[in-house]
Design a protein around this nucleic acid. Structure first.
Length: 589
DNA sequence: ATAATTTGTCATTGC
DNA sequence: CGGCAATGACAAATT
């Protein structure tokens, strides 16, 4: 390969000569100064003559960058994690729809309760409305999780009902890490102490949670609302018999089908691996997993910082600072030498990976390794980086450079200078060859990277022909453009990485929100169940003037706004429930 | 040997 | 106007 490349390079050189001619002409250089033959000779010389000095220049910068890249690469491999996450999500989302199918199951589950205690519900209209809403939600929730959650045997309706409660509590323990339940539980306690007694397991689980954070739930479940919310579950039972399908959930609005699907999926996921208790931890882990990605917040800021205009980059900055410091420092040094000054800052802001990528000298890195030759180990490359840093010597005469350049680390062991020289020659850039051919008395590195003032000073120190001057100008122009292109690509890469990070962050947030939603729904479901049991308890203990129990089919309990509970005829309750239900629907539309 | 990537160069644009 | 950086496009070089 190497030889072939050489050949190609030779042909390319000829082309280059033509190009140079054109450029020279463009620049105004007289042909007389630059004969074609001359050029050919020069180029040939370039090929033949392999200056180590120029090579050193190339490598110094590149080598350092290459090293940096390796480090970065590792980091990137680490980043792969986030990628996994999306897959999980997708799988979850895909799975969701399937789960949504079995809504009936839940109804069945609830129905047993209803059958047992069903008819006797004499609830106020509000109660019914709330209940209906709750039912809807419960249905949805149940559909998603019913299968999993409700595995209780279909024994007596009552037993089944109660069985549900116990099951839920367990789930709560798992999922209920948030105070929402707490808030609910509190409400419950207010309502009636008995309720808690029924689902002992659930209540116990709930109680501890209660104190922590009930704000969200409380807000949603205002004192008035609470009654309604709680009861809905039971209503489900009753509603199923009477008007289950009819009642739309007011809360249902919150739960769109899509949402439900996701939730159901989430439920599955949670049940599989996400314990509610651990949920928070999991979330943290997720965040940490991003590791590379870091917090979403980081990314946006960093991007802006790096380039202002182009993109947002971000997250990497923080991470890069610590871990990459060593690598970054080396990289930065290389940068300065090459002259890609502009973006050194960017590289710093960026993660190691990014910085390296930006520098973009993977090939160079390999080259460096090759250069090191004697030291195949990657670590050996590091010393080169140091050299790179030192490359300033570069400016020295090429011959001196050659001698001093590579070998210093002790690389010269086997190969002999010749081999290394060959390598160096191969690594020399076209412009370096040209410069050598034209006998430019200073390094391309200087030509390219020196500030204008120093550059002019340098030129003034030598008497250079027009051809040499034009070549130097071209070298400077091309060199700067080369670095600009590298920076540009680096920037582009950074932008992409940052966008990917943002996507990962958003996916993580989405997953977290879904998890939280599932947990809330679960707690809500449990609360509804508790309300159901309470409702049954209360209703079952009511006696008419004759000491006989009220028929659930004829009467229902309704929760009044003032906190009182009324026993009203079923017909009234149903009517009120319908009225209240319809309004929310219209709003939705 | 070919396909895919990376890197260098040029032309253009805007500052 | 000249210089310079950024960037798209194309070509050469590498993998």
């Amino acid at each position: 390969m190497g030889w072939e490349s050489h050949l190609t390079a030779a042909s390319a050189d000829i082309d280059l000569i033509d190009i140079l001619w054109r450029q020279d002409i463009d620049l105004g250089a007289g042909r007389e100064i630059f004969d074609y033959s001359h050029r050919q000779k020069e180029q040939d010389v370039d090929k033949d003559l392999q200056d180590g000095a120029e090579r050193e220049d190339t490598w110094s910068g590149e080598g350092a960058e290459a090293l940096a890249r390796n480090l970065l690469v590792d980091g990137e491999t680490g980043e792969s994690f986030p990628a996994q996450f999306p897959a999980d999500i997708s799988s979850i989302t895909e799975a969701v729809p399937s789960e949504s199918e079995p809504p009936g199951l839940q109804n069945n589950l609830l129905s047993p309760l209803l059958t047992g205690t069903e008819s006797p519900f004499d609830l106020e209209q509000q109660w019914q409305d709330l209940m209906s809403i709750m039912e809807m939600q419960a249905m949805e929730v149940n559909t998603s999780t019913s299968e999993i959650l409700y595995s209780a045997p279909p024994g007596d309706p009552l037993s089944t009902n109660y069985s549900l409660a116990p099951n839920t509590p367990i789930n709560q323990n798992v999922s209920l890490h948030q105070a929402s339940l707490g808030g609910c539980s509190q409400d419950f306690s207010l309502f009636s102490p008995e309720v808690e007694s029924l689902p002992a397991a659930s209540s116990s689980a709930l109680l501890p949670l209660v104190p922590s954070n009930s704000t969200s739930l409380n807000s949603t479940f205002g004192s008035t609302n609470l009654a309604g919310l709680f009861f809905p579950p039971q209503l489900n039972g009753t509603a199923n018999d009477t008007a289950g399908p009819e009642l739309p959930d007011p809360l249902g609005g919150l739960l769109d089908e899509a949402m439900l699907d996701e939730i159901s999926l989430m439920d599955l996921a949670i049940e599989e691996g996400f314990n509610p208790v651990q949920a928070s931890q999991l979330e943290e882990e997720f965040d940490s997993d991003s590791g590379l990605s870091l917090d979403s917040s980081h990314s946006p800021s960093s991007l802006s910082s790096s380039e202002g205009s182009s993109s947002s980059s971000s997250s990497s900055s923080s991470s890069s600072a610590s871990s990459s410091s060593s690598a970054s420092s080396s990289a930065s040094s290389s940068f300065s030498e090459e002259g890609a000054v502009g973006y050194s800052s960017d590289s710093e802001t960026l993660d190691l990976e990014e910085a390296e990528g930006a520098v973009g000298y993977q090939p160079e890195y390999s080259k460096l390794c090759r250069m090191s030759y004697q030291d195949p180990s990657p670590l050996s490359c590091l010393p080169y980086l140091e050299h790179v840093g030192h490359n300033h010597t570069y400016n020295m005469a090429p011959s001196a450079l050659d001698a001093a350049d590579l070998p210093p680390p002790g690389a010269l062991k086997k190969g002999g200078k010749e081999k290394q020289a060959d390598f160096l020659d191969k690594q020399m850039s076209r412009d370096e060859h040209r410069a050598r051919a034209m006998k430019i008395p200073f390094t391309n590195d200087k030509i390219i990277n020196l500030p204008v003032e120093e550059f002019n000073e340098l030129l003034s120190k030598y008497q250079l022909s027009e051809a040499q001057l034009s070549l130097i100008r071209d070298i400077r122009r091309r060199g700067k453009n080369k670095m600009a292109a590298q920076n540009c690509r680096k920037r582009k890469l950074d932008t992409i990485l940052n966008l990917e990070r943002d996507v990962e962050d958003l996916q993580r947030d989405k997953a977290r929100l879904l998890r939280e939603k599932v947990e809330f729904l679960r707690s809500l479901r449990q609360m509804k169940q508790k309300v159901q049991s309470l409702y049954q308890e209360v209703f079952g203990r009511l006696r008419d003037e004759n000491g006989r129990p009220y028929s659930p089919s004829q009467y229902a309990l309704q929760y009044a706004g003032d906190g009182s509970v009324l026993l009203i005829p079923r017909t009234l309750a149903d009517q009120q429930a319908r009225r209240q239900e319809r309004k929310p629907k219209d709003r939705r539309k």
